[in-house]
Write a protein that binds this DNA or RNA. Structure first.
Length: 577
RNA sequence: CGGGGUGUGGCGCAGCUUGGUAGCGCACCUGCUUUGGGAGCAGGGGGUCGGAGGUUCGAAUCCUCUCACCCCGACCA
């Protein structure tokens, strides 16, 4: 492609609204333009990136035995009402009416649509397993769109849906997708990490996310992974092993009330009590956290040296909205100022305890009274709990749950996800088949997404420098950019044209900067848009029959004879990621 | 939805406090010169100052309402 025949509006300054470096670069380098909040136009370069990545996705999905279809972006509301998600999807779902006043939604995902497709016609176990996917525009009325393509209201996604007759086959289908995902991200030049994730609104049995780790602030997902084994999890889900299990008293002691003037935090309480009674550590303290669950107070008990994981906690509480209670609620519930809450004497409030707390004896807790704590409180004798579970957060340096390694915590960008849905949707929507005994059964379904527009931005976030983007070769809009420093000079132009023709004929995606601009402008733009290989043609080296070959990710420059440039380019591309 | 902020030519901004009829850099067009990391000179085009109403002889500037956008939070691929 010749630069003057396409449209690459590069900008010297990034628009003020862009926050992330990747967002700024995509705008500055002329890949995207914003039409409205969370709605972007894909310009020629972006279109090529999207197509390249989509093609990789297609090839790997096809290789994994999935078949491509296209489902509508629009769907009648009934389809969503059937699964019950019309109500639960809430304000995130884009809705509209047609001219007759009938209700429609702009699909944010397609479980309902594909289930209704399959419900009437996929009837026999002989047709299973089946996996269908599409690459489609999705709509989500995000509360707050941001970060360019990362969180838009309209975006492109690959979504696949698998149908199986039984659990074993279901697991196999799931594994095939997982394998395909690793291949896809690898081909796109990205190191991805698969982590366990919370199933969230999607529901189902288990779920994983595929994450690209980034160092910048762009990462929205926190994940923890082991530095030794393959164990990795989203922070919402991460578990760890207790490194120094507390010594548990053998006998229970009598409950004792002590005055603790002005000591409200765990650190203060520990310090205060140590000074007084010695042998007190944070592990013996139990934190009592009051939460506001949809307007009603609930209590979380965790060991004093732990942090609460709100996602895990809410998996016990099942609240729509869960947040730390304000001072007023705490006073109302405990009858004491913040800092002295404890489970002893709390009435009519659900109390959820972390598993670790169950094992403890003679714990120290607030006494629901100003400046007072209890020593030697014991479960069942002094207080009761509603339910227990794992509700604590893993943090950097904790012991891996499966090996002797340490957990590391990093930020990442979620680029794909996989859900083992089981029979949740097929049951609610009546999607059934006949097994080999002629018995009617609901399908085992899986759902698998990849962010087609988000992933390239994640790549930019991962691969860039001060001058611009550095694309992995397989998703770069062009693999090679030719920069004749002065296109008006006959020898330079002729050399540029002939190399362009040769590379293009050889099937190498090549961009020729045939603009009449000065060298500096073109070189800067070349760095900005980030093609992995650059061929620079200048008068001095061309006099000796040479052009310059340079990789975007390196400062090394090779002088190459014009006659050998094709081979040299191929060789260089081989070495690049 | 709560808190904070911004709307002035395609992009980045000044002007607003103290009202007097719009300016700078980049980009764009023409010409000449220049030509290896965002050139120089000269000339030029483009803005109902987000919108509506009000105050005033006069509003980008003051007041009221409204819309859009951005940041922090809750939500999420």
């Amino acid at each position: 492609m010749r630069w003057t025949q396409t449209y690459i509006p590069t900008l010297r300054d990034a628009p003020a609204e862009a926050e992330l470096i990747s967002h700024k670069l995509l705008v500055r380098a002329g890949y995207i333009r914003r039409l409205a909040s969370g709605i972007y136009l894909y310009l020629p370069l972006m279109q090529r990136v999207i197509q390249k990545f989509s093609q990789i996705v297609r090839e790997e999905m096809d290789a994994a035995g999935a078949v491509e279809i296209t489902m509508s972006a629009l769907a009648p509301a009934e389809v969503w009402q059937k699964s019950g998600r019309y109500e639960t999807a809430g304000r995130e779902q884009m809705r509209l009416k047609d001219r007759h006043g009938r209700d429609y939604v702009l699909n944010g995902t397609h479980e309902e649509v594909i289930t209704s497709l399959v419900a009437g016609e996929l009837k026999s176990y002989k047709q299973l397993p089946l996996n269908m996917y599409q690459i489609q525009i999705k709509f989500r009325d995000e509360i707050r769109p941001r970060f360019g393509l990362m969180r838009g209201r309209e975006f492109i996604m690959k979504d696949a849906y698998s149908f199986d007759a039984d659990v074993e086959s279901h697991r196999l289908s799931y594994q095939k997708m997982v394998d395909a995902y690793f291949k896809i991200f690898k081909r796109a030049g990205l190191d991805s990490r698969m982590v366990e994730s919370d199933t969230g609104a999607m529901g189902g049995e288990s779920a994983h996310e595929f994450i690209v780790i980034v160092d910048t602030s762009a990462g929205e997902e926190y994940l923890s992974f082991c530095d030794t084994c393959e164990c990795a999890a989203n922070r919402e889900k991460a578990t760890f092993r207790d490194e120094n299990p507390p010594t548990i008293d053998t006998e229970t002691k009598d409950l004792e009330k002590v005055t603790t003037p002005n000591v409200t935090s765990i650190e203060q309480v520990t310090k205060f009590l140590k000074a007084k009674f010695l042998k007190v550590d944070a592990q013996r303290l139990v934190k009592t956290l009051i939460y506001n669950a949809d307007g009603k107070p609930v209590v979380a008990l965790i060991r004093g040296d732990r942090e609460l994981n709100e996602t895990k906690f809410n998996n016990l509480v099942h609240a729509v909205e869960l947040e730390l209670a304000d001072e007023e609620m705490v006073r109302k519930v405990t009858g004491a100022p913040v800092g002295f809450a404890g489970p002893v004497g709390l009435k009519d409030i659900p109390i959820y305890a972390d598993n670790e707390v169950l094992a403890l004896k003679n714990i120290i807790v607030g006494a629901n009274e100003n400046d007072t704590h209890y020593l030697n409180a014991n479960l069942d004798r002094d207080f009761t709990i509603t339910e227990s579970g794992d509700i604590i957060a893993a943090s950097e340096g904790d012991l891996c749950p499966k090996c002797e390694g340490r957990l590391m915590c990093k930020k990442g960008i979620e680029v794909g996800n996989t859900f083992m849905l089981g029979t949740k949707y097929s049951e609610s929507m009546g999607a059934k088949f006949l097994d080999n005994n002629g018995k009617e059964k609901p399908f085992f379904m899986g759902s698998y997404g990849i962010g087609i527009t988000r992933t390239p931005q994640a790549a930019v976030e991962r691969y860039h420098d001060d001058s611009g983007i550095i694309w992995p070769k397989n998703i770069a809009p062009y693999q090679v950019e030719i920069v004749p420093l002065n296109y008006k000079q006959d020898p330079l132009r002729e050399a540029a044209d002939s190399i362009y023709a040769e590379l293009t004929a050889a099937g190498i995606d090549t961009l020729l900067d045939d603009r009449a601009d000065r060298a500096g402008v073109k070189l800067n733009d070349a760095d900005l848009i980030g093609c992995p290989v650059r061929i620079t043609i200048g008068a001095k080296s061309l006099d000796a029959g040479n052009v310059e070959l340079k990789a975007r990710n390196s400062s090394d420059v090779q002088l190459v004879q014009v006659s050998e440039i094709h081979e040299a380019v191929k060789a260089m591309l081989e070495t690049l990621k």
